[in-house]
């Protein structure tokens, strides 16, 4: 369903919230979905080309920029780019050092990647909502959602990766039995063996929910914030053009705070979760 020349408000919104989906359709074979319904029919084996394009593109910009700074790095007087990169690295490094007590070569770069990458993806939210989709439509692409973090697949993809690291480090540091014991023998414990065994299912339920909640909350918090923010931009875009700035400017200014904050929260929680995975109880 390409957008009609005179869309209704709900068509307009739905169009803006629809990803560009490439997948195997039961009838059309491998193709781009032309409507939300078609996208749904493709099921799991489909991919959001726009989300992947923008997310990987922004990731590459981040790495290119930082690699460039890292290649020309000097311990003398730094240039502006190096200054900026050092600022970010130092900020992330300090956040890691404050929270994470163990020693790990992974967690610093992980936190930096999360912070900068998510920030860049969130930053796309400040691009006028119609600008890129219009251009895309002009060159024959029906759907174009340029903020990857408004795609729950993207946020969940990242949070599940973090979750995998949590599990990996929990088992690596505490051992499989130690990890299981942490899940099964807490928070309720007793000196009496029988009561202890009786507590196991309760503990497993509580700790299991707590564990599963980590990646879900991580993903949904980011997704929800950015999705809501984007939605409000879209709603503002429904106003007459001469009134839009009265709302879009304050919302954009407020949103600058949100996009940095959400990137920071995702990073901090990742550090905290991994720090918990490294600690013995």
């Amino acid at each position: 369903m390409a957008v009609s020349s005179n869309p209704t408000a709900s068509e307009y919104i739905q169009h803006h919230l629809q990803n560009l989906v490439l997948g195997v359709h039961p009838e059309n074979g491998l193709s781009f979905a032309h409507s939300a319904a078609e996208a749904k029919e493709m099921g799991f084996w489909a991919i959001h080309v726009d989300s992947m394009f923008w997310s990987i593109g922004l990731g590459l910009i981040f790495l290119w920029l930082f690699k460039k700074a890292a290649d020309n790095i000097t311990n003398g007087v730094p240039g502006p780019l190096q200054n900026f990169v050092e600022l970010m690295v130092e900020f992330v490094d300090n956040s890691v050092k404050e929270t994470f007590n163990g020693k790990s070569n992974l967690i610093g770069p992980l936190a930096l990647t999360i912070f900068v990458w998510i920030f860049l993806m969130n930053l796309m939210d400040l691009v006028p909502v119609d600008l890129v989709p219009r251009i895309a439509t002009a060159i024959g692409i029906d759907y174009m959602k340029i903020v990857p973090t408004t795609d729950v697949n993207v946020t969940l993809g990242m949070s599940l990766s973090v979750f995998a690291l949590i599990i990996y480090y929990s088992i690596k540091i505490k051992g499989a039995s130690g990890f299981m014991a942490e899940l099964a023998l807490q928070p309720f414990s007793s000196d009496n063996k029988i009561i202890k065994v009786l507590f196991i299912p309760v503990n497993l339920l509580l700790e299991g929910v707590g564990l599963i909640a980590k990646p879900i909350s991580l993903a949904l918090r980011l997704f929800g914030n950015l999705y809501a923010g984007e939605l409000i931009f879209i709603l503002i875009a429904l106003l007459p053009w001469f009134l839009q700035w009265t709302l879009s400017v304050p919302w954009a200014i407020f949103h600058i705070l949100v996009i940095v904050l959400q990137a920071f929260i995702f990073m901090m929680l990742t550090i905290v979760y991994l720090s918990m995975a490294h600690e013995h109880h």
């Binding site: 749904k40 799991f44 992947m52 990857p148």
Partner: peptide
């Protein structure tokens, strides 16, 4: 909220 391959793609690129 339809989950699909994007999730894996994002995880891999991550």
């Amino acid at each position: 909220m339809n989950l699909n391959l994007t999730l894996l793609g994002q995880a891999i690129s991550f």
